[in-house]
Design a protein around this nucleic acid. Structure first.
Length: 595
RNA sequence: GGAGGUGUAGCGAAGCUGGUUAUCGCGCCGGCCUGUCAAGCCGGAGAUCGCGGGUUCGAUCCCCGUCACUUCCGCCA
């Protein structure tokens, strides 16, 4: 390699380099053999340079050139020359020049490709993952991997400027079964015992606060053994941070600044601050989601005032049983949405537990179609009250509150996509705050932490939180971007007395608490400072920045939805010896079809 | 665990209501070609239509089952 090592890269030659003798290393991107003259587009990470083997070239050289195939890795030595008049390629950074080759060395050949590295058409995802090294060569992946790097760089710069220290925390930790399932790692030295991979560095970062670190961050890998989605896979990356003596607003402002800096540095996009703040209640009432997509409006409105004056019984009984009836006006959708398409929307609502989806279309005269016949008398009032205009579609949802808003919320999301209201190049941040601290488990009737047990109840609930846990709001906050939950955090409990009361409310035995995270509780008894923090889903953030639909497109080596890596075929069985070392045995699943 | 979608040469797709020699583009192989840049022209190879069963005179097409991928629900402190 020493001999034909590159002296320049494939993206840097310009007209000013004409006459120089240089060496390029790269891949055969395109190969155009005209019989006489032979053109090669040589590609590396930095760009593409046209390499020319002239007719006058030596037989040796011409033979070598004719052997070249797609994605061969080669070294080309030659002289930079200006392209002939009229032959300049305006679309190439190096389009004014070309390399007249004097020596060509094949550094490595390439098998026939399973798919075209340069194609407009992407092969299916499984193939992309199997041959990840090839897919990583594509411009799209190169751009996204760079974007991801740029984003980490911006984040590290910003947080360092703000006085944060990056501290690593263990990845072999104690298993804490609440929350997501843990990935377990057996201990050979301590047979029968297991480490867990961290779902987040939560406990450690709080202890860092107790340890006087004051401001901590970490670009941390986290692991959760749950089924994958487009925005979720077994291992993912968080920008985890925590601040001592900080209020909620300190954290929100710090993170807003981090987003501003990151979007500016990486995309040259100016993100306006402060981000709008919605209470969880508002988000649910208006958008039916705790991660509302604010790129389009279509807020829900209360339809209850029109229910009693109508013969439509379904909504009446909903209200009588304490439920909610919501209306959503879809602008200019009456024409586009046929019965069939509305029934598709209804299916979405049903998948979220709704019994149905009522609708009517707004005409110049009044209301038409669907359930409109029940509301003819109130048509004018409805139009006026809901601010619905001719050609609009009104969707109505009646159910218990939670089902009503969440199912209509799902419909809203689908409409946003179908109507082209969710432009990927638009970035609408918001904060969702004031989450309930406790949720009732409908099956057991017990109170459970909505986030985790270390989040602080808001001060006004402190005296009375035992009386009605369901009404207690926590100092919790989520950052939402374009309908994606991008970050989540809270002000933490640092007072052992309050912590103990929270454990009591969720019925978490003191003994068990001491066993699981006694070390944290103990730390709090040694003058731990008040602190607050949050974690940003880094993969999701880069996904939105790169305008992709799945985090797998911004992760170099992702797993598929089955948790499998098609490239290296993990997870895989292990040798009996390995299991024996760990004192583990595999339980074979029973064949149930034997009768 | 559940619901939907997809599965046709190496890749991306077409194949409408059952009858085709299973089509097209890219790639691959061979040949021609002095200025291309998604080069062009001529020729060629390459497909048990995911797999298994069924209906039918006949199935890529219809039905059932199954597998893989994917989207969503459940799950994700």
């Amino acid at each position: 390699m020493e001999k034909n090592r590159r002296t320049v890269n494939c993206g840097q030659l310009t007209i000013g380099d004409v006459g120089k003798t240089v060496t390029l290393n790269g891949w055969i991107h395109r190969n155009r053999d005209h019989g006489g003259v032979h053109f090669i587009n040589l590609r590396d990470r930095y760009g593409i340079t046209q390499v020319v083997i002239d007719e006058e070239a030596s037989e040796d050289l011409r033979n070598t050139a004719s052997e070249l195939k797609m994605e061969f890795c080669v070294a080309a030595v030659g002289t930079v020359r200006a392209r002939p008049e009229g032959m300049v390629n305006e679309d190439m950074a190096t389009g004014e020049v070309e390399l007249a080759v004097s020596e060509l060395e094949v550094l490595n050949s390439c098998l026939p490709l399973p798919f075209m590295v340069d194609s407009e058409e992407e092969p299916n995802e499984n193939l992309r993952l199997k041959y990840r090294y090839l897919h990583l060569r594509t411009q799209g992946m190169q751009d996204r991997i760079k974007m991801r790097h740029d984003a980490t760089w911006a984040v590290r710069n910003y947080l360092t400027d703000k006085g944060f220290w990056e501290v690593e925390t263990p990845t072999l930790i104690k298993s804490t079964p609440e929350g997501a399932r843990d990935y377990l790692v057996p201990s050979r030295v301590n047979p029968g015992r297991f480490y867990a991979l961290p779902q987040s560095p939560q406990l450690y970062k709080q202890i860092l606060m107790a340890g006087g670190t004051d401001r901590y961050y970490q670009i941390a890998r986290c692991y959760r053994d749950e089924d994958a989605r487009g925005d979720r896979q077994p291992e993912f990356t968080q920008i985890d941070l925590e601040m001592s003596f900080a209020s909620r607003d300190d954290v929100l402002e710090t993170v807003e600044g981090m987003m501003v800096k990151t979007f500016k540095d990486v995309l040259d996009v100016d993100v306006p601050t402060p981000f709008p703040r919605l209470s969880w209640q508002e988000a649910m009432e208006n958008y039916g989601s705790d991660k509302p997509d604010l790129r389009f409006n279509m807020k829900f409105q209360d339809f209850a005032p029109f229910v009693s004056g109508s013969e439509f019984g379904v909504f009446k009984s909903v209200l009588e049983s304490g439920g909610t009836v919501k209306a959503m006006v879809v602008p200019a959708a009456a024409e586009v949405y046929s019965r069939k398409k509305i029934s598709e929307l209804e299916d979405v609502a049903k998948s979220r537990g709704a019994r149905g989806l009522a609708w009517m279309k707004v005409t110049a005269e009044g209301l038409d179609g669907g359930v409109s016949k029940f509301y003819t008398e109130q048509a004018a009032a409805i139009k006026n009250n809901l601010d619905a205009k001719e050609g609009d579609l009104i969707l109505l949802m009646g159910s218990d509150w939670k089902t009503a808003v969440t199912s209509l919320g799902a419909v809203r999301v689908k409409l946003g996509a179908d109507l082209g209201l969710t432009k990927p190049e638009e970035f609408k941040f918001c904060w969702v705050i004031d989450f309930p601290l406790f949720e009732k488990n409908e099956e057991t009737g017990n109170w459970e932490p909505a986030h985790h047990m270390f989040s602080m109840p808001q001060e006004r609930f402190l005296d009375t939180m035992e009386e009605n846990p369901g009404e207690v709001l926590g100092d919790l906050y989520d950052m939402v971007l374009n309908g994606n939950e991008l970050a989540s955090g809270s002000v933490r409990i640092h007072d052992p007395a309050i912590q103990s009361r929270v454990f009591d409310i969720v019925g978490f035995p003191k003994k068990e608490a001491e066993e699981r995270f006694g070390f944290l509780l103990e730390a709090f008894r040694y003058g731990a400072p008040p602190h607050a923090g949050l974690a940003v889903g880094f993969d999701r953030m880069v996904m939105v920045m790169a305008q992709m639909n799945t985090i797998r497109d911004v992760i170099a080596f992702p797993k598929n939805t089955q948790g499998i890596s098609p490239m290296d075929n993990s997870p895989s069985p292990v040798d009996a010896d390995q299991l024996a070392d760990l004192k583990l045995a595999i339980i074979e699943e029973k064949q149930e079809d034997k009768a």
